[in-house]
């Protein structure tokens, strides 16, 4: 017939690369790309979000805050606690030197969670659980001044800006891959970084709080009291959420002690007790 099928040599249609080697190269490239872009983007976002005026933050959170307070009305007693905290915060605000347009609003939550946090728009949430642990006013002031310092430094909006930018970047890389597994792995790391303060931000807030307490009380006695208590309880299995994201308690105590010894205490150096009504209402 004159027709024939010649033997085709093996492997002419397939690239001769070891799949594992190729995977290693690609994965390394992706990791470098992700790390580089995350670092660059978060630096840029940190820098740029500072230009968002505080009033925008306030406007954005106003309705949310109002809805929350409407839905969770406080009893007379709880309101008294909240007012006390607000008064203490106002005094600390003056000694910390916040911008005039920055207002601090304290929200007291009747819950056993041992936590307090600062969030967008100058809102600070304090839980009953944390108040119950407070040995005296000075320890409470340290925590409050720390949270106020976060607001002063614009940490909530900076963290959100950074977190959102990184999240968007990672999901768009994952989108290029169009692969659910990538989305899972990358998306989750992005979410983790959203709205959590960095160690540097925490340390800066601690320093600011120490300065505030020095101006307010003239001394730092009792400022480390809460952290010392937490340090003692460290062996217990359930770590209070308050200090998960915060610098190591041990280091914080040392920093406070170190700062306290750097100047001479003035005036009455005894710690101030918490008011009686507060003790009763907790």
């Amino acid at each position: 017939m004159g027709y024939e099928n010649r033997d085709i040599p093996e492997g002419i249609n397939v690239s001769e690369t070891h799949p594992l080697k190729e995977f290693a190269w690609l994965a390394a490239g992706l990791i470098i790309l992700v790390v580089f872009s995350v670092v660059a983007l978060s630096l840029a976002a940190e820098h740029l979000t500072r230009y968002i005026p505080f009033s925008v933050e306030q406007k954005a959170t106003a309705s949310l805050s109002k809805r929350y307070t409407d839905e969770h009305p406080l009893s007379q007693q709880q309101l008294q606690v909240q007012n006390y905290l607000q008064t203490l915060a106002n005094a600390l605000v003056i000694h910390q030197g916040l911008d005039d347009n920055m207002t601090i609003k304290i929200h007291y939550v009747d819950d056993d969670t041992i936590n307090a946090f600062a969030t967008l728009g100058g809102h600070i949430v304090v839980f009953k659980g944390l108040l119950q642990m407070m040995p005296h006013e000075n320890a409470l002031s340290m925590v409050m001044a720390h949270e106020i310092a976060h607001i002063k430094h614009r940490d909530p909006i900076v963290s959100l800006g950074r977190g959102l930018t990184v999240y968007l970047a990672l999901t768009s890389i994952a989108g290029v891959g169009n692969n659910s597994a990538f989305e899972d792995v990358l998306g989750q790391t992005g979410l983790l970084t959203m709205m959590s303060f960095s160690r540097e931000q925490e340390s800066a807030a601690d320093r600011e709080a120490m300065l505030t307490l020095k101006r307010y009380y003239g001394h730092l006695n009792g400022a480390a009291a809460l952290f010392e208590m937490l340090e003692h309880e460290k062996d217990e299995p359930n770590l209070p959420s308050f200090f998960n994201t915060h610098p190591l308690t041990d280091k914080r105590i040392k920093a406070i002690k170190g700062f306290a010894s750097s100047f001479r205490a003035e005036g009455d150096t005894t710690v101030k007790a918490l008011p009686d009504f507060l003790r009763q209402s907790l």
Binding site: N13, V14, T17, P19, E22, L26, G29, L30, V176, A181
Partner: peptide
């Protein structure tokens, strides 16, 4: 298989021959 899909996904980002699919 899952491995090929991941490698091909990486190829989608960096370009080049998708050797995983060729075979």
């Amino acid at each position: 298989d899952y491995f090929k899909r991941i490698v091909a996904g990486l190829n989608n980002i960096f370009g080049g021959r998708v050797a995983a699919y060729e075979s």
